[in-house]
Design a binder for these strands. Structure first.
Lengths: 74, 74
DNA sequence: TTATAATATAATGAC
DNA sequence: GTCATTATATTATT
């Protein structure tokens, strides 16, 4: 396995990134896109990051969380 | 899906801690700080706790309540 | 009654 | 899956 510090995570191990709440407009855009494509490739994630002004790794985390939480709806 | 009693609440469920009224000086300091930073990290909360002589979890509760009070004025 | 301290839980960001 | 932080609803006390 790779080290616990993956390439897309700029923070050193053991430090938790500052909690940032997404703005409603950003959330709306992400939800809308997720409905169309839950598994965007790196190019798409980078485009979303530019358009919404969110770091790429946050986009990645958001889609990961969204996938797992979509599944436990029952 | 947080657990019932989260980490910032050291009392077991069903037990209510004693009501504590903040002194005017403590309230003033909290309000002043809140204006600068409504979401202090754990290190900052611990510093405030030391300086104002208030337990850390009460600091946390005050900031949470202050956020909702702020929102209700609109 | 109003203000606010305190409890509990849901939603969600980060890991 | 797990933990941490924020948001919100509610209860209780001064």
């Amino acid at each position: 396995m790779a080290s616990t510090c993956t390439s897309w995570s700029p923070l050193p191990c053991g430090f938790r990134r500052r909690w940032l709440v997404l703005k409603p407009m950003q959330q709306g855009a992400l939800h809308a896109f997720f409905q169309r494509n839950p598994y965007p490739g790196i190019a798409t994630r980078e485009r979303l990051a530019r358009e919404l002004d969110i770091p790429v790794f946050r986009i990645q985390v958001w889609f990961q969380n969204q996938c797992t939480r979509q599944l436990r709806q029952s």
